[in-house]
Amino acid sequence: MTANTDRYEHAVARYIEAWNAREPEAPAKAVAAVWAERGTYTDPFSDVRGHEEITAMIAAAHAQFPGFAFRLSSAVDGHHDTARFSWELVSEAGGPAPMAGSDVITLDAEGRITSVLGFLDRVPAGARLPLR
């Protein structure tokens, strides 16, 4: 494993942690630690910028999918300042993953996320999107 591979895996692990942060102040702190101040998140249903909007989007996901958590479902692959990986939204009680996708992230020199481009492979019927 190279230092660059560690960089990508560390960034993705912190990204997943931010999506799973639930305590009242935890999501905002996790987003501030993971994303650059002007970071962005874009997928087919959401297009948000900055810590406040990203935190609100994560909170909306928790409200819509209570009892679920994001988990990495692939290896992290990266080069230069870009990494890609797949994830699933899984029930903490067990059972199938109702939502899954792949994300491409871009990192700044400090390893913080400057952009996320998300692709949704599986979305449950009745999901309220966008998450804002």
Rank of each mutant, 00 (worst) to 15 (best):
M1Y: 13
T2Y: 08
A3I: 07
H10R: 15
H10L: 12
V12E: 04
R14P: 11
R14Q: 14
R14W: 13
N20R: 03
E25N: 07
P27F: 00
A32P: 02
A33H: 07
V34Q: 00
W35G: 00
A36Y: 07
E37Y: 14
E37N: 12
R38Q: 13
R38H: 15
T40W: 11
Y41V: 12
T42P: 03
D43L: 11
P44R: 09
F45T: 00
D47Q: 15
R49V: 05
G50Y: 05
H51E: 00
H51F: 08
H51S: 01
E53H: 06
E53P: 11
T55M: 08
A59W: 13
H62M: 04
A63Y: 04
A63D: 14
Q64A: 06
Q64K: 08
F65N: 00
F70K: 04
L72Y: 03
S73N: 14
S74K: 10
A75N: 15
G78T: 12
H79P: 13
H80L: 12
T82E: 15
F85S: 01
S86N: 12
L89Q: 03
V90S: 07
V90D: 00
E92P: 02
A93K: 13
P96I: 02
A97F: 05
P98M: 09
A100W: 07
G101L: 07
G101K: 09
D103F: 01
V104R: 11
R112M: 09
R112T: 09
L117R: 15
L117I: 15
G118W: 06
F119D: 05
D121V: 08
D121R: 07
A127V: 10
R128H: 15
L129Q: 03
L129S: 07
L129Y: 05
L129P: 03
P130V: 05
P130D: 14
L131P: 04
L131N: 06
R132P: 08
